[in-house]
Design a protein around this nucleic acid. Structure first.
Ligand SMILES: [Zn+2]
Ligand SMILES: [Zn+2]
Ligand SMILES: [Zn+2]
Ligand SMILES: [Zn+2]
Lengths: 141, 141
DNA sequence: AATATTATTGCAATAGCTTGCATAAGCAAT
DNA sequence: ATTGCTTATGCAAGCTATTGCAATAATATT
C-alpha cells in the first residue's frame, strides 16, 4: 500500500522506527476521510491488534503531527479530532450555541498568514482550523 | 470597588446570584493584568476564602466567559489562561519549538472577522487568541 | 542467525478540567 | 426576622489526554 511505503520512507529518513502500531494509526486516520478521534482510532486499531494501547495512539498521533502527516483540531465535541494533513483543504466554523460545524474555504487564512509572516516573521500553522463563534441562524436568537 | 458593583449589576440583570466566590474569582482575574490560570486563581482565592473549591473556580470562569467578562486562551503552557475581556487588546503568537509567547496587535484579525461575517454570516470570536507556529528565531533552526 | 543497542510500547499513575448529586446559601415574599 | 423556593457550592467521581518507568521489540552490527 502506498501510504505504508511512504510512511516507512518518511520514518526512516528521520530516524524513527517503523512499528505496526504506527502503520495502523496512520491507516486509520487516512481511511476515515472525515474527522476521527483518538478513541475511535483506538477502537479500530484494537480490532486489528488487540494489545494496542490508547497511550500509543496518542503518542503516535503526536509523532504524525510533527511529521506533518495529520492535523489535530478542536471542533468542540469534547475530544480532539484528527485529519490527514494535505487532504484538509478547508477549515471549520463551530457555533457555540447550536454546535453546528460548517466547512469553509482554506483561502480565508492566507492573508492573515502572510501578514503574520511579514510583520512578525512568524510562520503560523493554519492547517484545518476550528473557529468558534455564533452562526447566522443562532444570531437572530 | 467598581468591579464589584458592576458585577453585581450584571449578574442581577441576567438573573444570576451574587456570591462571594464569584466576586473573588472576578477580582483575581482583574487584579492580575497579565494571564492567570484556574489553579492560580484558586490559590489566591483560597487564601481569602478557605472553602473555595477548584470546581467553583471553573464554573465561575465558565459563567464569566458567557457574560463576556473574561477571555479564555490556550497559550501552550499546559493549562488554559484567563484575561479580563475588553482589556485584551492584543493576541499572542506561540512558538511550538521554543515556547516563546509574543504579543501582537488586535487588528490582525479584523479583516478575517469581516470576511467570515460577509461570506458565511458567522460571528467569529477572536478575543485574545493564541496562534501556534514557528517564530523567526526558530525558523532558521 | 545471534547479539547489542536503544527507541517504542504497555501499563499504571497523574494532570487538567468537567459533571452528578446532596447540602448550603442567595433572594423574594411574607 | 422567618419561610420557601431555587440556584450555587463542595465533594467525589469521571473524562480526555499526558507522563514515568520497566519490559519489549526494531534496527544495526557481528
Ligand atoms: Zn475538516
Ligand atoms: Zn448556531
Ligand atoms: Zn495576552
Ligand atoms: Zn521559537
Amino acid at each position: 500500500m502506498k501510504a505504508e511505503r511512504s510512511l516507512a520512507e518518511i520514518l526512516r529518513e528521520r530516524g524513527y522506527r517503523l512499528t505496526p502500531q504506527r502503520m495502523i494509526v496512520l491507516e486509520a486516520v487516512e481511511a476515515s476521510d472525515h474527522h476521527i478521534s483518538a478513541e475511535e482510532i483506538h477502537t479500530k486499531a484494537h480490532a486489528r491488534y488487540p494489545y494496542m494501547n490508547i497511550s500509543t495512539v496518542y503518542r503516535t498521533l503526536e509523532l504524525l503531527k510533527e511529521l506533518d502527516l495529520v492535523a489535530e483540531t478542536d471542533l468542540g465535541g469534547g475530544r480532539l479530532v484528527y485529519h490527514p494533513a494535505g487532504k484538509a483543504h478547508h477549515h471549520h466554523l463551530v457555533c457555540r450555541k447550536c454546535g453546528k460545524v460548517q466547512d469553509i474555504d482554506r483561502t480565508v487564512f492566507e492573508r492573515l498568514r502572510d501578514e503574520l509572516k511579514d510583520r512578525y516573521g512568524f510562520n503560523a500553522e493554519f492547517e484545518h482550523m476550528g473557529i468558534f463563534g455564533t452562526c447566522e441562524a443562532c444570531r437572530g436568537q
